[in-house]
């Protein structure tokens, strides 16, 4: 049987920049055996459906975004270097000297070119290079590079996962494969149990761009309520206290105007009653997650948010604590088995 860590490490190996989620095979293969039906919709979302044991049960959607931050090729220059722009979520600071995978005709390894300090003037050393001045070296001549890569091909970080001490792990795209992994793990735990709800699991496309996938799925499925699983900022040496949460402190339950009060209260109550470690994450406006789009789908969807603290977001070495993921997974299981939160007369 697969563990949470198996799920996570398999998922992080996939290259899925926003808008190119159809390149995934792994997530669908992991989801299919755990649900009654599994399909890719026309936006590129992977949707799994598990039927309720009872007739007239309500529809509950549990969502995590599948996509990761990405770059896009804009030019192959006469020396074979690739020029690029931001597709979604990248800041230039993390780029110099990182390794990347270019999704050309096949996945191609590359590195973001950088000048050694010996060759930089003191001024240049202080000033970070803007993204449109950076290039990627894939080691090929211009002619060969142009056979393998086209303008418009996407690029992602290349970094394998690793264990750190204290059941923490690091890697790329933990935002939000950690969320996808905890849903898979929760489904795995529920696989033999009859469900009180019609459960729709959505691994959504395009969150790092503008959240188009989750919005489409919420409209199409029209759930009675939804639970969004994403990551939030994990506390490290430099993070502000009110915007980052300790790793190992449990799952963070979102409290925000856009989130439904009943769903939020239910999640807080479930965590407290079942000794699931948790904390409250207060957000004054929008949440910056797919909750914002799902909440206003059609005539409105009551939505709750559970997040996993993650350090060094949108870098190649994001860090999460497996214990927090385990807490999140248990919360999803309790929430589904209780039949969701909102009870209509």
């Amino acid at each position: 049987m697969k563990t949470l860590q198996n799920f996570l490490f398999e998922l992080c190996g996939e290259q899925l920049p926003s808008g190119f989620e159809r390149m995934s095979t792994g997530a669908k293969e992991l989801l299919a055996p755990l649900v009654d039906e599994c399909y890719t919709d026309r936006s590129g979302n992977i949707v799994g459906y598990r039927r309720a044991a009872l007739a007239n049960a309500k529809k509950v959607m549990v969502e995590a975004h599948l996509d990761e931050i990405g770059l896009m090729v804009t030019k192959i220059d006469d020396n074979g270097f690739l020029h690029f722009t931001n597709l979604a979520g990248f800041s230039p600071e993390i780029l110099p000297a990182t390794s990347v995978t270019v999704r050309g005709v096949r996945p191609l390894p590359g590195v973001v070119a950088t000048l050694p300090p010996h060759l930089l003037s003191p001024e240049e050393q202080k000033k970070p290079l803007p993204m449109d001045k950076m290039v990627i070296d894939i080691g090929y001549s211009a002619a060969r590079a142009r056979e393998l890569v086209r303008v418009g091909d996407p690029i992602v970080l290349r970094q394998s996962c690793a264990d750190l001490l204290n059941h923490r792990v690091c890697g790329k795209a933990l935002d939000n494969r950690a969320g996808v992994a905890v849903i898979l793990n929760a489904l795995n735990d529920l696989v033999k149990m009859p469900l009180p709800v019609n459960l729709y699991v959505v691994f959504s496309a395009g969150e790092e761009f503008n959240g188009f996938g989750a919005r489409h799925a919420a409209w199409e499925i029209a759930p009675d309520e939804a639970l969004v699983i994403d990551v939030t900022h994990g506390a490290s040496a430099q993070t502000p206290k009110n915007k980052a949460f300790p790793l190992g402190g449990g799952v963070m339950i979102g409290v925000a105007p856009v989130l439904n009060g009943e769903v939020t209260a239910c999640l807080l109550d479930l965590a407290a009653r079942n000794q699931i470690p948790y904390g409250r994450e207060a957000m004054s406006g929008r949440t910056g997650t797919n909750s914002d789009g799902i909440a206003v789908s059609r005539a409105g969807v009551p939505v709750g948010l559970a997040s996993i603290p993650l350090r060094y977001m949108h870098s190649g070495c994001e860090v999460v604590d497996l214990a927090d993921m385990q807490a999140c997974s248990r919360l999803i299981g309790r929430y589904v088995m209780q039949g969701g939160a909102v009870h209509y007369e």
């Binding site: 919709d41 449109d132 086209r150 303008v151 188009f212 489409h216 789009g293």
Partner: peptide
């Protein structure tokens, strides 16, 4: 091919409507 690093067009609004538009 057109990969534009700035600016948007009408499809930005339409893509997000309903169950999604190609």
């Amino acid at each position: 091919r057109d990969v534009l690093a700035s600016g948007g067009t009408d499809i930005g609004s339409v893509q997000l409507l309903g169950k999604g538009v190609q």
